[in-house]
């Protein structure tokens, strides 16, 4: 441990306890009530009270956009002999039929497992920040970090569609066009990324500190 803990009367302090407001971007602290960080210019708020509202708003938008993303085709493939339209899951199943299990797994993980997992994780974080949870706060903080890190990787499928539909343009022999699902899927990923960014992880710790004030050992 390199940093010194700040305590008062044997109790560990948060910036808020000490009458200070912390900048979430550059970690500098300022006197309570200051509106903007004097170092990096970020908007300061001791606790983002509207955080959960924003999280839920983006979350709902993300879930709504995710439904058509699975129902409509992602790719339309035209060859000399056939015309096929593939949804996300349909495309992965087809890949698996051709024996490319690894790639099918990447698609399924990036387009189904990660988005659904993210919806569940964000919902859990938002609910537990208000109601408390038996899951230790450190685990929940890690969960938040993972959700923030992993969000962008869901865009893989959109990029795959972009690459394929610009590359495979061989007049009548074969051509690939993007389907409407590409659009709604991209929107869904963006909404969940914004939802995760709106979450204020300090709320996790506030709930814990309210229940059992930590004493320093």
């Amino acid at each position: 441990m390199v940093c010194m803990e700040i305590t008062r009367a044997g109790k560990r302090l948060t910036a808020r306890d000490a009458g200070l407001v912390a900048c979430r971007r550059c970690a500098r602290v300022w006197p309570m009530g200051q509106a903007r960080c004097g170092r990096c210019g970020s908007h300061l708020e001791s606790r983002d009270t509207k955080s959960l509202q924003k999280v839920w708003a983006w979350w709902i938008a993300g879930v709504i956009a995710y439904i058509p993303a699975n129902l409509y085709p992602m790719l339309k493939t035209n060859t000399l002999v056939s015309h096929t339209e593939n949804t996300i899951i349909g495309g992965a199943v087809e890949l698996a039929h051709h024996g490319s299990f690894g790639v099918a797994a990447i698609i399924l993980i990036a387009s189904v497992l990660i988005p659904v997992g993210k919806f569940l994780a964000i919902a859990f974080l938002a609910i537990s920040a208000r109601r408390g949870s038996t899951v230790p706060p450190r685990t929940r903080t890690h969960m938040f970090e993972i959700v923030e890190f992993i969000g962008r990787w869901s865009m893989i499928d959109v990029f795959v569609v972009a690459i394929l539909s610009s590359l495979v343009q061989l007049s009548v022999v074969a051509s690939i066009q993007p389907g409407p699902a590409a659009m709604t899927f991209a929107l869904s990923v963006i909404c969940t990324m914004l939802s995760a960014q709106a979450f204020d992880p300090r709320l996790i710790w506030d709930a814990v500190r309210r229940q059992q004030p930590r004493k320093t050992s």
């Binding site: 700040i6 970690a27 506030d206």
Partner: peptide
């Protein structure tokens, strides 16, 4: 290992962006 907020200059403090714990930055 520990100090009180009054002893530290405000520019030497650092707050954890994830849980708001306050430290004297070194």
């Amino acid at each position: 290992a520990r100090t009180t907020p009054e002893e530290a200059a405000i520019e030497d403090l650092i707050a954890c962006p994830h849980c708001d714990a306050l430290y004297l930055a070194q």
